[in-house]
Design a protein around this nucleic acid. Structure first.
Length: 336
DNA sequence: CCGTAATGGACAG
DNA sequence: TGTCCCTTACGGT
């Protein structure tokens, strides 16, 4: 269940593990047999992310370097990539040791306990319904449960990208420049009366934001999620873009989402109001493929899945309702 | 042990 | 609006 930061991290991992290599592509589950046959034996020449979309570019020969076919993958709600490697130095670096989560599922280096000897490495048998297996020189990547997985042409890739909004994690924002991307987002939100909390979930308005970043960026900007986009000052919308660029980039670096400032965490010495007694708690959880522990998940968010708990700043119970088909969380006091 | 929600989104009707 | 994708962690029993 990734948001954009996870997919960009995945693109980086594919780049590190596989780009420049001839790959064996198969579909152990069988449902992607035709697509796998198209890519099998080709060279991976690119790994890109735009919002929650992952694009892996293939070419017949390394020399060309221009992708002729693209594998488009969208993980959706419970898709996952599982990686295993032979323990050689570069792979250990890329996968992380001793274990690491990517996408959503746990990743375990499959080699013996002697890193560096990958000569007779055999990839592990696929576990579960593996739609696609990519096998490179030193590692294997298995895809399970995706919403989308297809082989497309460069033209079809361009058509998919044309439907996506600007992405704060792309170097040029997906609009040629960071300034143009920011302006595009502001203009798009303000030309509609649709509630800003709904627009943030629209991948044509901004690509890569999901339910966690939606709730958290609105809280940090003190914006009422139900406010029509047209009524939100441009400075506040632009400020949310800038904040998302920081938060999501931090998410890429950490491998998980943290939006709280240290002074607002329970252990930060802040004036955190006491928890209401007797309420059943349901702790949030999230993807975490980075090193755990720096900020525990209970401390990572201001409002996401904290309904009924006191606001970290004002103490008012956090509210929830459905918006855009997902549960929205916000503070009715701070986000008046 | 079982039921359910979950960081999404495509598609049918 | 409902279905699919078909996994996983968690809470309640």
């Amino acid at each position: 269940m990734p948001e954009g930061h996870t997919v960009h991290r995945l693109a980086r991992t594919f780049h590190d593990l596989f780009v420049g290599q001839t790959l064996r592509v198969s579909s152990p589950q069988g449902r992607f047999a035709d697509g796998a046959a198209l890519l099998d034996g080709q060279v991976l020449v690119a790994a890109e992310a735009w919002g929650k979309q992952l694009f892996l570019g293939f070419a017949a020969a390394r020399a060309g370097a221009t992708a002729e076919r693209w594998l488009r993958v969208h993980l959706g709600m419970y898709g996952a990539w599982t990686f295993a490697g032979d323990g050689s130095a570069d792979v250990v670096h890329a996968i992380g040791a001793p274990r690491r989560r990517i996408g959503e599922r746990e990743t375990v280096p499959a080699g013996p306990d002697d890193p560096g000897t990958g000569d007779d490495w055999e990839p592990p048998a696929p576990r579960g319904a593996v739609r696609v297996r990519l096998l490179g020189e030193h590692a294997v990547a298995d895809l399970t449960g995706p919403t989308a997985c297809e082989v497309i042409t460069p033209g079809e890739k361009a058509a998919v990208e044309a439907r996506l909004g600007p992405d704060p994690l792309r170097p040029d924002g997906g609009r040629g420049s960071r300034d143009a991307a920011r302006a595009d987002f502001v203009e798009r939100v303000r030309r509609s009366r649709v509630p800003v909390g709904r627009q943030l979930m629209d991948q044509a308005v901004i690509a890569g934001v999901g339910n966690v970043y939606r709730a958290e960026v609105l809280y940090r900007a003190r914006v009422d999620p139900m406010r029509p986009g047209h009524d939100v000052p441009a400075s506040e919308i632009g400020g949310m873009w800038d904040d998302l660029a920081v938060l999501m980039r931090d998410g890429v670096a950490r491998g998980y989402i943290v939006t709280t400032r240290p002074e607002h965490r329970d252990a930060g010495g802040g004036a955190v109001p006491p928890v209401a007694a007797g309420r059943a708690r349901r702790r949030p959880r999230q993807n975490a493929d980075g090193e755990p522990g720096a900020v525990p998940v209970e401390e990572a968010f201001y409002v996401y899945r904290r309904d009924g708990l006191p606001c970290r700043v004002c103490g008012t119970p956090v509210l929830t309702r459905e918006l855009a088909g997902r549960n929205l969380y916000w503070c009715g006091t701070c986000q008046g």
